[in-house]
């Protein structure tokens, strides 16, 4: 088969960005910078993998940023609360991790329940839960910042900063999630069903696919991944506040779309999403590493690149 330019689009954009970055600053390709960029991409990246499934199945989730903030707050509170009885150490970290995962699953289930069983528009449901989680975390933090007890912070720190063979844990987890997601999307019955539901839910229903179950699972899966992303996030600064995770949902959605998944559903690809996430992180990184661009214009440059990436894809699609 001839190489499909539509497929190559996001890859070319990424390569171009890397070339620009390397030309701008000699430290760009240093191990430290690469590690930084990849690790910080991990939160959005892990979430964006889940978002790809939700969008592929014709849904949307605006609540992930707030959900992450809320889960982070909850995880910190749980660990701080149990610290006097359990003492600082890995068992307590385990409890915190468990709390984050359970909270993520419940939050995802709630979104899914409202969208499927209650038949409310996904946009409205998740806009609602977005506000709910955001104010819950503000309330939990009493308007300020929730900080993990200092003793625990030292224990949990390695989850973000350490790793194996010089590769930090967030990168490893992100890679695992992405690879598993790619396999499920391409070769799993679930991925095929999600695409069918997003493509035409009537056809899926008439083909004996349990449409509600598939939709529900995409939200639950996304909730789980938000929980996992939070587990990576909390050790970094050991705190959560109402400004945690602001606009993560839009970054995740933008990454998904840049990667070639269709916003109206029916087709999704995880590797594209991963590239989309990397493109977004790299733009920030390059702007920080470069002089000469007014920092006031960072948002504009990001916006232009996002729109360009999508336009390029569409033209390639029409042409190819």
């Amino acid at each position: 088969m001839k190489p499909d330019l539509h497929v190559l689009g996001p890859i070319l954009a990424l390569v171009a960005l890397i070339l620009v970055g390397a030309a701008m600053n000699s430290n760009f390709l240093s191990a430290a910078n690469v590690t930084n960029v990849l690790s910080r991409s991990a939160f959005i990246g892990i979430i964006a993998v889940g978002m790809t499934f939700v969008i592929t199945a014709g849904g949307l989730d605006l609540s992930v940023g707030s959900m992450a903030a809320f889960i982070a707050g909850l995880m910190i509170l749980v660990m701080n609360g149990l610290l006097p009885t359990m003492g600082p150490g890995w068992p307590l970290v385990g409890v915190g991790v468990g709390a984050a995962i359970v909270a993520g699953l419940i939050a995802g289930f709630l979104n899914g329940f409202l969208v499927t069983t209650m038949r409310i528009e996904a946009f409205i449901v998740t806009l609602g839960t977005m506000g709910i989680y955001r104010s819950l975390v503000t309330w939990l933090a009493d308007g300020g910042t929730l900080s993990l007890d200092f003793g625990m912070r030292t224990v949990i720190r390695p989850i973000y900063y350490d790793g194996i063979l010089g590769i930090s844990w967030p990168i490893i987890v992100f890679a695992l999630v992405a690879v598993l997601g790619e396999i499920v999307m391409r070769r799993g019955a679930f991925g095929r069903h999600a695409a069918a539901v997003g493509s035409n839910d009537q056809v899926a229903r008439y083909s004996s696919v349990d449409v509600n179950r598939v939709r529900m699972l995409t939200y639950v899966f996304l909730g789980l991944l938000v929980g996992i992303a939070t587990i990576m996030y909390v050790p970094r600064l050991g705190s959560a506040s109402s400004s945690t995770g602001v606009l993560w949902e839009l970054e995740a959605i933008a990454a998904v779309i840049i990667g070639g998944t269709m916003l109206k559903g029916g087709f999704g690809r995880i590797w594209g999403t991963v590239i989309g996430v990397l493109i977004l992180s790299l733009i920030d990184n390059i702007l920080n590493l470069t002089d000469g661009v007014s920092p006031y214009l960072n948002g504009a440059i990001q916006g232009v690149i996002i729109i360009l990436a999508v336009i390029l894809q569409r033209e390639r699609k029409a042409g190819g």
Binding site: S243, D291, P295
Partner: peptide
């Protein structure tokens, strides 16, 4: 030698500082 917006936000300033340190 360098100045960027950290938006009074911990996460943003972490990112910006990481990049300053690389640069």
């Amino acid at each position: 030698i360098d100045m960027e917006h950290g938006n009074w936000n911990r996460d943003d300033s972490f990112t910006v500082m990481q990049d300053f340190l690389s640069k």
